[in-house]
Amino acid sequence: MFVELDADGRRRVLRTETLLVLALSLGASGVSALISFIGSLTRPGGLKDQAATLNGSYAPGRPWLDLAWQLFGIATALVPVLLVAHLLTREGAPGLRVLGFDRTRPVGDLGRGALVAAGIGSAGLLFYLGARATGFNLTVVPEALPDVWWKFPVLILSAVQNSVVEEVIVLAYLLRRLDQLGWSPMAALLASSLLRGSYHLYQGIGGFIGNVVMGVVFVLAYRRWGRVGPLVVAHALLDIVAFGGYALLAGKVGWLPTP
């Protein structure tokens, strides 16, 4: 039996729900990234002399066990998205479709996502190189997986997982809940963008600032289109190029920093 709540009661429930979802997902990642950043700041040497590895091996020298851990990590990271879908359904909404995460407009989502990725990708790379050169960023190592047959499929799955979790939760779900709680559009934009920056702080100040700017762009695009699908596509393309490009180019071109 469900208890009928007044307006204040519904707001309290939504506020608690939102905090719990974030605590189980990217809010916790933000706290973890802050602790990691403090550790990097207090370690001898500059930030650019330290490395932040995004996709590393869980079982070096044991490829099948490593693959099992990789797939387990990717699958469990998606559980908060399933929780969000469940909570939206209980609300009476059609699950993730209310956020524009469905297959009703594949061509439009792919086209818009590719355009966003092209614009952000080139600017983001230049910003990262500049931030690292000036000592505001760690050296980001997008992948450090062994050279085995499943390397690139796992990198692609990892990129898709990152994009789905971040855009569904930090962009679409969070904005929906903040709107329902009566936040102004500007306050919601700042909250979403700063949260996005916070869980990239382990990369350094450059990673924080770059992702805050990306967050602002994504919020504005989501408000305009009313669909998170294109932003999931954009984020997935950005990560696929970053992970795969690093795997192919690291140590072979002089402009790409390596540890």
Rank of each mutant, 00 (worst) to 15 (best):
A68L: 10
L238A: 09
G73P: 04
A114K: 03
P257E: 05
V116N: 06
P106M: 06
L26F: 11
Y246G: 09
V141N: 03
L115T: 08
L175F: 02
L157H: 05
R12V: 07
F127L: 15
T89K: 12
L14I: 14
L194R: 07
Q180L: 15
R223K: 05
L220N: 02
A191E: 07
V140A: 10
A51F: 01
F127M: 14
A250S: 15
V253G: 09
V217I: 13
R62K: 07
L96V: 12
L88M: 14
L190K: 12
I169C: 09
S193Y: 02
A93F: 12
R10V: 14
I156T: 15
W69F: 12
T18V: 08
A242K: 00
T76V: 14
T53G: 03
L34D: 11
A159E: 08
G46H: 05
A131K: 00
G27Y: 02
V148Q: 08
A247L: 11
P60W: 00
G244K: 04
R43D: 12
L19A: 15
R227E: 09
R177I: 10
L138H: 06
L71M: 10
E17T: 13
G245M: 06
V3L: 07
V141T: 08
L54V: 11
A234M: 06
G111T: 13
G135W: 02
A191Y: 04
A159R: 07
V165F: 03
A187Q: 14
D49M: 07
V165Q: 06
V253F: 03
V232K: 11
G121P: 05
I205S: 04
I205D: 01
T76H: 02
G46D: 10
T76R: 06
M186E: 15
T258L: 03
A23G: 15
R177V: 14
A191I: 03
V228L: 10
W69K: 04
V3I: 09
A123P: 11
V228D: 12
